[in-house]
Amino acid sequence: MAKTVTTEYGSWNTQSGTGVDTVTEAVATALGEFAGDYDLDALTAAYETAINEALADTGMTLNGSEFYGPYPRGDVDIRAIVEGVDFWEIARQHERGAIAYTADVGASNAKWIVADPEMRALLHGEVTDLGDGKIRITSDGYEILSGLDESADGLIDDGQIWFEGDGYPLAVS
């Protein structure tokens, strides 16, 4: 089995074009005086996930405040990729006062619902993997998942989200 060698491609500060050291700082800076109107932890996690999804075709990842990718280094315009992620659409989904739901569905279910190509196409970022098996579902995502076929994983019914016949309670957040 061939091993892939990785190397650093630079830090968030040097590659993102935001002028700050971390994704968390970039989020807070973009929101400015309105930062308190948003769930910053969930928004930051969703933004990082979206950036990593945008980087996926390059073989690169954002890990903390550093970009890593295959060696030898390719010619990748990281700044353009970061700028191509619609931060404000992600922010809209994490605005406080907007109804959202959370559930502890286990790590494998959380990863599946945000990474499965069919679910990603259906949900358009309306579900966020918060880590540790927890997910956040926007009100639009709730509507979409409530309309799934009864046998489908991810179905929301009776205040629960269902995976492989097991229901996980939803909490309003």
Rank of each mutant, 00 (worst) to 15 (best):
E143D: 14
Q160Y: 08
Q160I: 02
S146E: 04
Y142M: 09
T44K: 01
G84F: 04
D166S: 11
P72S: 11
S151M: 08
T14S: 15
I137K: 02
G154P: 05
I90K: 03
E48Y: 05
A100H: 02
G159C: 07
S146R: 14
A107K: 04
H94W: 08
S139F: 01
D41L: 11
H94R: 09
P169W: 02
D149I: 00
Y47M: 11
T58V: 03
D104N: 11
A121E: 14
D21W: 06
V172K: 15
E8T: 15
R73P: 12
G32Q: 05
A2C: 10
D166T: 08
P72M: 10
E66A: 13
L145Q: 05
D153N: 15
Y38F: 15
V105D: 05
D166C: 07
I78A: 10
G97D: 03
A56H: 09
E118L: 06
G154E: 05
D132S: 13
L55M: 12
T29K: 15
W88C: 02
V20T: 13
L62V: 03
A54C: 08
A80W: 02
A46P: 00
E118M: 05
E25W: 08
K111N: 09
F163T: 05
K111Y: 08
I156A: 12
V105N: 00
W88P: 01
Y142V: 05
Y38V: 05
E33W: 02
L31I: 13
R120C: 10
D140H: 07
I161Y: 00
A30R: 10
R96L: 14
R73N: 06
A171R: 01
D158G: 01
V82D: 04
T6I: 11
G154I: 04
E118V: 09
D116V: 07
A45P: 01
G97L: 03
G141Y: 04
G59F: 00
V105S: 07
I81D: 07
L148D: 14
G59L: 00
H94T: 02
